[in-house]
Amino acid sequence: MARVIIVLILLTGAIAGGLMYYQQVYAYYEEVEFSPDAVVMTSLTSGAPEPLLVEEFDAIDAISSPLRYRACFTTPISLATLTETYVIVDEAEPRVAPGWFDCFDAEQIGADMRTDAVAFMGIENIQYGIDRIVAVYPDGRGYAWHQINACGEVVFDGEPAPEGCPTPPESLN
């Protein structure tokens, strides 16, 4: 009888673990449909997000977290033009994508931003405390993801918003 109970406990743990893994890696993600403003970057002159001409767009997102957005694309616009036109971000760190979304390699993108690729502000505060970052390579490959900004880091830890940050929504207070 004890062996049956032990086997049932182990089986229940394995099923629960498998279900949690599936939910984290597969369950909540959805493909993002392409639209003309699928990738935007913040203009140096106007300070407003402007659509970027992109091709070969592939993206995923999930309603379970604002940090699950990832996108891969190409753009025919030169990196030189982009750096003269859009806001560059120095503190960008791509977040790891699920293994099945194989066009997005966060470790490689992060390493390449120290040498080749340039990170730009896509949309600041796309959701309070979350920025969309866009990185582009000299050959036109591009990637986008969401990351927590300085205001979000403080407010999400339960502290009041620092000076210069927008007022957090009521749900965060």
Score class of each variant (00 low, 15 high):
residue 98 P to F: 07
residue 35 S to D: 05
residue 147 Q to W: 05
residue 162 P to Q: 04
residue 59 A to L: 03
residue 116 D to F: 10
residue 80 A to W: 01
residue 164 G to R: 13
residue 165 C to L: 13
residue 156 F to L: 10
residue 154 V to H: 00
residue 131 D to L: 06
residue 156 F to Q: 09
residue 77 I to E: 04
residue 18 G to F: 03
residue 73 F to S: 02
residue 133 I to N: 06
residue 61 D to M: 06
residue 21 Y to V: 15
residue 36 P to M: 10
residue 161 A to L: 00
residue 170 E to P: 08
residue 101 F to N: 08
residue 165 C to G: 04
residue 129 G to A: 09
residue 159 E to R: 12
residue 41 M to S: 01
residue 100 W to G: 15
residue 114 R to T: 02
residue 42 T to M: 11
residue 104 F to N: 07
residue 2 A to H: 05
residue 4 V to P: 01
residue 23 Q to I: 04
residue 162 P to S: 10
residue 88 I to M: 06
residue 48 A to E: 14
residue 91 E to P: 01
residue 166 P to K: 09
residue 124 E to G: 14
residue 42 T to V: 03
residue 107 E to V: 04
residue 50 E to I: 13
residue 32 V to D: 05
residue 136 V to E: 05
residue 66 P to E: 14
residue 169 P to F: 09
residue 84 E to P: 02
residue 77 I to N: 11
residue 158 G to A: 12
residue 122 G to S: 03
residue 155 V to D: 03
residue 71 A to Y: 02
residue 107 E to T: 14
residue 105 D to H: 10
residue 12 T to I: 06
residue 8 L to Q: 01
residue 169 P to G: 12
residue 54 V to N: 09
residue 166 P to H: 13
residue 119 A to L: 13
residue 152 G to V: 05
residue 29 Y to V: 13
residue 121 M to D: 02
residue 165 C to A: 05
residue 125 N to K: 01
residue 79 L to A: 02
residue 142 G to L: 06
residue 160 P to R: 02
residue 5 I to H: 06
residue 125 N to V: 02
residue 63 I to V: 11
residue 106 A to L: 09
residue 141 R to T: 05
residue 129 G to S: 05
residue 160 P to G: 02
residue 9 I to R: 06
residue 166 P to T: 15
residue 101 F to G: 12
residue 12 T to A: 11
residue 153 E to D: 15
residue 61 D to T: 08
residue 53 L to G: 00
residue 56 E to K: 11
residue 171 S to K: 10
residue 85 T to S: 13
residue 105 D to W: 04
residue 112 D to Q: 14
residue 52 L to I: 01
residue 17 G to V: 04
residue 41 M to D: 04
residue 38 A to H: 00
residue 138 P to C: 05
residue 14 A to L: 15
residue 70 R to F: 13
residue 163 E to P: 09
residue 136 V to F: 06
residue 4 V to F: 15
residue 31 E to F: 03
residue 78 S to Q: 13
residue 100 W to N: 10
residue 75 T to D: 02
residue 79 L to P: 07
residue 4 V to Y: 08
residue 118 V to T: 12
